[in-house]
């Protein structure tokens, strides 16, 4: 449905990697760490990972402990983010919730990227009828509004955080498939691929050993851009009550369920709202830096 040029243009451009992978990685890292946005984004992302792994060890209160008599207390020394409508410590809940945010981002991305690659890779590599079929299927999926598709899937398999993640992941497959496909279409005509094919390399081997590594950079960049959307999509699901199950302190659910306190107890809304905001911002910053580094053409133009 899309044209070759249109796809190639929307996506980060790529150059086949010819140098050994290890030094390549090191070069990229060096470039990356020099960028301010990568530094900020990296720190935010590392903090998120730290919170997800060690959060329960450092939180001051039990994030599930209800003290109704202390409900809706503004931020204070005792409760730095204040308390929610059940009198639970918001700071502890936010930290504890980091694991869910991380889970959502990772699992949806893995489903989306793996599904997209498994469909896009052979489809683009072999072309022909299979390609046609897969791409039409992706067009069908893209035809549904993203969030309605997620809603419909959750309505079928039942609401829970796990199912929400599956639905968000599945809804992300078509974009990944398209992205992978357009990248592969460029790569597969490159000399080193045709050379390997001429040498009699097996299709599967060429696909996964030669083509795949060469299209990784646009995929990685795209992942960094879609990860935050998954958290926002989970929040949208909570808006209709099909997101995380109580008492799970998932940020999106916390934000959505507290939205009517915006005026009377703004901290209940701001705590998850700003957290989502900062984390999303961090990953976006990191993703942009990554894009600049991985995308040589863009990098040169940025340097000039």
């Amino acid at each position: 449905m899309k044209t070759k040029t249109s796809q190639a243009n929307t996506l980060p451009q790529l150059e086949p990697q010819t140098r050994p992978a290890a030094s390549q990685t090191r070069r990229i890292l060096r470039h990356l760490l020099r960028k301010r946005s990568a530094q900020i984004g990296g720190v935010i992302f590392l903090t998120l990972i730290f919170m997800a792994l060690f959060g329960p060890l450092v939180i001051p209160y039990d994030p599930f402990d209800i003290h109704v008599e202390q409900r809706l207390q503004p931020p204070s020394l005792q409760h730095i983010f204040g308390t929610d409508e059940q009198g639970r410590d918001l700071f502890s809940r936010i930290i504890f919730g980091a694991r869910y945010a991380l889970q959502i981002m990772l699992i949806t991305t893995v489903i989306g990227a793996a599904g997209g690659l498994l469909l896009g890779l052979p489809s683009a590599y072999f072309g022909g009828a299979a390609d046609m079929l897969v791409m039409r299927l992706m067009d069908v999926m893209l035809g549904f509004p993203y969030i309605l598709l997620i809603l419909a899937i959750v309505a079928i398999i039942g609401p829970s955080l796990e199912n929400a993640m599956i639905a968000i992941g599945v809804a992300g497959i078509p974009s990944f498939a398209r992205l992978a496909r357009s990248a592969i279409l460029v790569v597969k005509e490159q000399d080193f691929v045709t050379a390997e094919r001429a040498l009699g390399g097996g299709n599967t081997r060429i696909m996964f050993r030669t083509v795949l590594p060469n299209i990784l950079s646009p995929i990685i960049v795209y992942i960094s851009l879609t990860m935050p959307t998954a958290v926002l999509a989970a929040a949208a699901l909570s808006f209709v009550g099909l997101g995380a199950q109580p008492p799970m302190p998932e940020w999106g659910a916390m934000l959505v369920n507290a939205r009517d306190f915006m005026v009377t107890a703004p901290w209940v809304v701001l705590a998850p709202g700003l957290t989502i905001f900062v984390v999303t911002l961090g990953i976006n910053l990191f993703g942009n830096a990554l894009r600049d580094v991985l995308d040589p053409r863009d990098t040169t133009s940025q340097k000039s």
Binding site: V256, R259, F277, L281, L285
Partner: peptide
């Protein structure tokens, strides 16, 4: 524009109304 990408939609909506 990064802020725009990171903002939950209805959060901005409530702020606009207020």
């Amino acid at each position: 524009s990064l802020f725009g990408l990171s903002m939950p939609a209805f959060f901005l909506g409530i702020l606009l109304i207020l």
